[in-house]
């Protein structure tokens, strides 16, 4: 019954700087949490200077280095705006690691394909780093500024293929169009791992089904407690007897694509 360990600790900000556009990199010293993080897991941060933003904000762990962990975030509201103003040396309350992450590809197994939309790529970095098998990262965004970390994945030995909707970087079009081409041409991909906007994830799930490939998808759901209690982040999931709501913070955020219903059955 007792799930995986987690820690609630005061984490010192080591780095907090704008990367490109609205995206920022935050590195925290979180010695209780960082060593425990598995690929696809997240941390739940309480941003103290924002008094009327009561709730914590969930962020996928991007990288882990010793006692430190990094996240990539985009300023989208008052919480992340307040976070972007916090200088190194200040502390945030960090809860983690949380959630059920990606399963690691097997050594000697088929080639993994990663699919990332926007800053969803952050959730895939640890997987790429720790996977015993290298593969291809398909990365998409609206424009060039949405393509983050591309050199990092190349440095790990992954092939990276990029699509932007406005054609300002890589191929013009959707990342799932690139993926479809690869699958149609009979590529060696054995399993898909994806994180990004819901539309992209649904398209990946559809392609996985079409080509008979397993897929693990990391959902980005609105959360409140992050530890399985409040039942805010539920998604409809297929079961043997029908369907049920499962918690993106606990049973997820990574789900098997075949389980996900996307819409509540009427």
């Amino acid at each position: 019954m007792l799930a995986q360990p987690m820690k609630d600790e005061s984490a010192e900000i080591i780095v907090n700087r704008p990367e490109v556009g609205l995206y920022h990199l935050l590195m925290l010293r979180a010695p209780g949490i960082a060593p425990l993080v598995a690929p696809g897991q997240f941390v739940h941060l309480r941003i103290w200077p924002c008094a009327d933003a009561l709730l914590r904000r969930p962020f996928s762990v991007y990288r882990v280095e010793g006692d430190c962990l990094s996240i990539l975030y985009k300023v989208v509201g008052k919480g992340t705006a307040a976070l972007a103003r916090m200088p190194p040396g200040e502390h945030v309350a960090a809860l983690g690691p949380l959630g059920h992450g990606f399963s690691l590809p097997c050594a000697g197994g088929g080639m993994p394909i990663l699919v990332a939309g926007g800053y969803g790529v952050a959730a895939l970095y640890l997987l790429a780093e720790r996977s015993p098998v290298r593969g291809i990262l398909f990365q998409g965004g609206r424009r060039k500024e949405d393509i983050l970390c591309e050199p990092d994945f190349r440095a790990l030995g992954w092939e990276v293929r990029v699509a932007t909707e406005d054609g300002s970087w890589g191929t013009r079009g959707l990342v799932t169009d690139l993926l479809r081409e690869e699958l149609r041409s009979g590529g060696r991909g054995a399993k898909l791992y994806a994180c990004g906007p819901t539309g992209m994830l649904r398209a990946v799930a559809q392609l996985a089904e079409e080509y008979g490939l397993p897929a693990e998808l990391s959902l980005d759901e609105r959360m409140c407690c992050g530890m399985g209690v409040c039942l805010t982040c539920v998604v409809p999931v297929r079961t043997d007897t029908g369907w049920e709501y499962q918690r993106a913070c606990t049973e997820g955020p990574v789900f098997d694509a075949r389980q996900l219903l996307w819409e509540v059955p009427s």
């Binding site: 709730l55 409040c230 805010t232």
Partner: peptide
């Protein structure tokens, strides 16, 4: 009990609005 459709919570000034539906 399955509970209500999502979104189930909304953060408001110094508070939280919820309609979980007793899942």
């Amino acid at each position: 009990v399955r509970g209500n459709p999502t979104p189930r919570t909304a953060e408001v000034a110094s508070g939280l609005l919820n309609a979980i539906g007793l899942q």
